[in-house]
């Protein structure tokens, strides 16, 4: 396939810049970029469900929290980062498999409400299961464990070291998601989004594919959560609350639901705007709320979708 240099060059520059972040910025900048990457992971998973499969989940924070707590619990017992992160992802994926199986029988508002209630069940569980989760105090002193592979041991206690681990994980996960979205599987998801009935009448068992999309979204939420635990070193039940589920939704909306890079740009803008607004005023929610309302009323393609339309490149097919 021919390489589109108008996309490839900015992409390469962007990735190069990401690698240079710890060289240019202090710990705070590094921390901020990591926040953007984690929200990116969370949001592209979420958007596979909404933008590509047409299902609006209000319970994604539940899977994020499962990933975060399981990773934290593993790290407190066994100091191996890979083990912790893998454990978090697997736990989130299994949870998504069970809850997804129950959820994908419904669609539309009923699906949204059921995922909301499942997410809040996880929240209540985390809040009340004090012996394991620490209740409302959460889990603290989560070690930023070293990366151990046979014969190698890389110390990640330094924030900038951990940054490179998160960066690599993010790049791989985003690349993988891009492959999925452009594959026959991705096309199948989009067909279900556009018309579930028609999809069934070309021979697609729609529930199975909805479940698969749900599990993939859960895995990505779990990955984001698992990577968060060693970053923050403290996690609290708030990460499971439904208002936390709104973050990937807002990021996807801001960037654009129907473009692959939409949720990524959205995540960067979400964290960026938040950082700037919080420095200037206390009223970050007000700004965010107004942004959301303006986008819904006038720019439903999001920032990226609108830009593509203005520059005459349709949001479909390419990106």
């Amino acid at each position: 396939m021919p390489i589109d240099w108008r996309i490839a060059i900015p992409l390469l520059l962007g990735v190069a810049a990401l690698f240079a972040v710890p060289l240019w910025f202090g710990n705070f900048g590094v921390y901020l970029v990591m926040q953007m990457m984690l929200l990116t992971l969370f949001a592209i998973g979420f958007n596979l469900l909404l933008g590509y499969t047409g299902l609006l989940s209000f319970g994604q924070a539940g899977f994020f929290a499962v990933g975060a707590y399981v990773c934290a619990l593993i790290l407190q017992q066994a100091p191996s980062l890979l083990l912790g992160v893998a454990g978090g992802i697997v736990a989130a994926g299994l949870t998504a498999l069970v809850l997804g199986y129950l959820s994908v029988k419904l669609t539309e508002i009923y699906f949204s409400m059921l995922t909301l209630s499942f997410g809040m069940m996880i929240y209540s569980l985390v809040w009340r299961w004090r012996e394991v989760t620490g209740g409302d105090d959460g889990l603290t002193d989560i070690p930023r464990a070293p990366l151990t592979l046979p014969g190698i041991r890389i110390d990640l206690s330094e924030l900038s070291h951990y940054y490179y681990f998160v960066l690599l994980a993010t790049l791989i996960a985003v690349w993988l998601m891009h492959r999925i979205v452009k594959s026959p599987l991705g096309l199948t998801f989009q067909a279900i989004r556009d018309s579930a009935v028609r999809a069934e009448f070309v021979g697609i068992p729609i529930r199975r594919f909805r479940l698969l999309a749900f599990v993939i979204a859960g895995l990505y939420a779990g990955l984001a959560g698992a990577l968060l635990a060693p970053l923050e070193r403290t996690i609290t039940p708030g990460y499971a609350h439904w208002t936390a589920s709104a973050e990937p939704i807002l990021a996807s909306l801001i960037g654009g639901l129907y473009v692959f890079a939409g949720p990524i740009i959205g995540a960067v803008l979400f964290i960026g705007i938040k950082e700037i607004v919080v420095r200037l005023t206390d009223h970050w929610m007000l700004v965010m709320g107004v942004v959301v309302i303006v986008i819904v009323l006038g720019f439903r393609g999001g920032v990226l979708g609108t830009l593509l339309r203005w520059t005459g490149r349709d949001a479909e097919g390419k990106s």
């Binding site: 492959r179 999925i180 594959s183 599987l185 991705g186």
Partner: peptide, 9 residues
């Protein structure tokens, strides 16, 4: 439909 790695194009 289950192929998830190669482009559909």
């Amino acid at each position: 439909n289950w192929r998830f790695f190669m482009p559909a194009a």
